[in-house]
Design a protein around this nucleic acid. Structure first.
Length: 263
DNA sequence: AACACGTGCAACCGCATGGAA
DNA sequence: ATTCCATGCGGTTGCACGTGT
């Protein structure tokens, strides 16, 4: 495969963009759009490579970009999503309208990573230093510290596994311990328990909104779907348990006890 | 005032991915 | 099936600016 020559070797400009270059790019895209980034700079009369133009547009010039400092809510959201997604900045940015992956990455490295280090009892602060800690622990940290840890892909592991036969008689109810149980007979017609599902669970905890899932309002800090959920692969549902407003875990039911697939 | 150092952020680099040929 | 190309992504760099000495 032949790599395209870098900007410098082509006599193209690098480094910070000038106001004039910005105006040319904005004007061109307003007139013609940006169908082909590689061809754009030549057509627009810019001495830049297409990659540089795309980056400048997506990270800075795009009209829907929200400028200014991140709000506390936005920072909290980033921290929670990072707990689920890891360094997948574009995935995090997709859930923060007006913010770019580059911007979120910068905020994480310059502010939030330090803040996370102040949260006691987490993998980021195992010694439990409480100095400077004000807000409640993250839900992800509750899961991590109370029961288990995330896998290499940032997904919650399922624990423990049960076979479908074990839950054939369970009904969808909540009890005094706020357990939500499956109705095994209703396991068709369910949304996939995929990555977006888990993100919605965490976003619900963050915002108090439960997305498309029917919810049981918990008077502690968590809302969760009351309906059974079907996972991708060989998993058929989950059982989310909250006790004393602190402990949280879930079980994933499968036909054969194998670890289900999450896509 | 001058310098050193730290911080924040825009931009770059190289690799991955997906689609077209 | 393979190659080529455009684009997207995450890690990293480098510079401007602020602050401390």
């Amino acid at each position: 495969m032949v790599r395209s020559p870098c900007c410098e070797k082509m006599g193209l400009k690098k480094g910070p963009w000038t106001r004039e270059e910005d105006e040319i790019l904005i004007h061109y895209i307003a007139l013609y759009g940006h169908g082909n980034w590689r061809a754009l700079p030549k057509q627009a009369g810019l001495l830049r490579c297409g990659k540089s133009c795309r980056l400048r547009w997506t990270n800075y010039l795009r009209p829907d970009i929200k400028r200014g400092d991140f709000s506390k809510d936005e920072e909290d959201t980033i921290m929670r999503l990072h707990g689920v997604l890891g360094n997948r900045w574009s995935a995090i940015a997709a859930r923060l309208p007006g913010r770019t992956d580059n911007e979120i990455k910068n905020v994480w490295h310059t502010h939030l990573k330090k803040r996370l280090n102040q949260i006691p009892g987490t993998k980021h602060n195992p010694t439990g230093d409480t100095s400077g800690f004000e807000s409640k622990p993250l839900l992800t940290d509750l899961v991590t510290t109370k029961h288990t840890s995330f896998d290499d892909h940032g997904y919650l592991p399922s624990s423990p596994q049960r076979s479908l036969s074990e839950i054939s008689s369970v009904t969808a109810t909540t009890d005094n311990n706020r357990n939500v149980c499956m109705n095994a007979a209703a396991l068709d017609n369910l949304p996939a328990m995929d990555e977006n599902f888990w993100l919605d669970v965490f976003m619900a905890e963050n915002s108090g909104v439960t997305s498309d899932f029917p919810a049981v309002h918990d008077d502690h800090h968590l809302q969760f779907p009351a309906s059974p959920i079907r996972a991708v692969g060989n998993a058929y549902g989950y059982n989310l348990n909250v006790r004393d407003g602190m402990d949280l875990w879930y079980d994933v039911f499968t036909r054969n006890g194998d670890i289900p697939e999450f896509v």
